[in-house]
Amino acid sequence: MKIALALIASFFSVVLITENNGPVLQDPDQVLQIQKGIDNNLFAEDNEKCLVCHGEPYFELADTATGVIRNRLMCDDYHVDRDEFYQSNHWSFACTDCHSYDFEIFPHPVSTRLEEPYHCNDCHGYDEQYARYQFEEIQIEYEESVHAEIDGFSCWKCHDPHSYEINIRNSTSLGKTILYDNNICLECHANFDNFQLLTDKEEIKVIDSHGWLPNQSAHFTSVRCIECHTGINESILVAHKLLPKDKAVKRCTECHSSESRLLATLYKFQSKEFRADVGFINGIILNQSYVIGANRNIILNVLSFIIFAGVILVIVVHLFFRIIRRA
């Protein structure tokens, strides 16, 4: 079975070798059909040559002249978790699809270590197979975001290619997706060690800076950070234009209203029942959550107006007879 899957994977793989032994692009629809995992990766054995060091917390540094061998800590930035990698979006890749073959030389030459890494659009941009994901538009959004102003920031800071998984598009549990996505932000914004590697700004106290939010924990577990911290872009699936903090959404009714922005953000993928005429307005939100002001039942609304109007009418009629009969 595993061999059959591997054969299918190789059969459907669209190989695009670039000048520098570049990335292997694979048909995303076909790859999605194959079960992720090390057993179905055609290059797992080759990858082990890298992961023997980069997949471990320690690596051995040996001096061939003296025969001295020492264990050294593998820096976090260069550590690749096997389990995460083989469950990530790029699970089917060989390390050398993206990294130079020169990395097979150990110790790695400085010139190799200084190679310019690929960016998302080097593989995903301007390609019909990925057109529907609009990576080019995402790039434009990113360049307008506050993250783009930071030296050394790139797509990889949020979307580690060795572990990143598409979440919202294939989500079966919105709660888990929200947790996964928010943890990406909190990796830096709630971890000052990581944060200060990129900026000299003061430490952000996430809990304190969101102290104004009623039911803070309910908000943190029910929506993603980007719901309020990005501008809405109707043409792409997930907004990437991170706004300055003073531009973040603070008006409750942006979400808590019949025109809730959550329909254009968090619930964009599930908005089939979008603004139904009968039943719950913004009914899709009800699948996983309930947003006061955004969810209203049309039938209950109409019924309440009828009852209220009926009571007023009875009172007016009663009052009328009281006046004319002086009762």
């Binding site: 104004w212 008006r251 409750c252 009714t253 942006e254 808590h256 019949s258 025109e259 809730s260 002001g293």
Partner: peptide, 13 residues
Amino acid sequence: AGSGGEFSLIRFD
């Protein structure tokens, strides 16, 4: 509540 505050009697918060 309306998104622009048009139906709100007072501010949502």
